[in-house]
């Protein structure tokens, strides 16, 4: 298994920090990509932060009320080694399936 840290991303508009309002996941939870992880408040607005990936949450950083700087760890995921890519899926190495049969007569001249 591999660990992937998800730091607080740049939330735009020059914001450098955010305050945790409420965690929507707990350590041990299996989350899907785009599933809301945490409700944050910035000096501009409150927002739900979606998960950048699927995986198991193993650590969360920041109790409600605590402020986290952009770039600091927010969530640590655990993912299987072979699905550690962030974009796309890992192709399955299935047993090859065929419909076509070769029916050639070879002339071995």
């Amino acid at each position: 298994m591999a660990e992937i840290s998800f730091p607080l991303p740049d939330l735009g508009e020059g914001l450098i920090e955010a305050t945790v309002l409420e965690w929507l996941v707990s350590p041990g939870d299996q989350v899907e990509r785009n599933q809301p992880l945490v409700e944050l408040e910035t000096s501009k607005s409150a927002l739900e932060l979606p998960s950048p990936q699927a995986g198991k949450v193993i650590r969360i950083h920041g109790a409600p009320g605590e402020t986290i700087n952009v770039g600091e760890p927010l969530v640590v995921f655990e993912v299987p080694d072979n699905t550690a890519g962030i974009v796309g899926t890992v192709p399955k190495d299935d047993a090859p399936k065929r419909r076509v049969r070769l029916s050639a007569v070879l002339d071995e001249d």
């Binding site: 090859p96 399936k97 065929r98 419909r99 076509v100 049969r101 070769l102 029916s103 050639a104």
Partner: peptide, 9 residues
């Protein structure tokens, strides 16, 4: 696989 097999054929 089938398209490659057809090419071989």
């Amino acid at each position: 696989i089938d398209r490659i097999l057809l090419g071989i054929q």
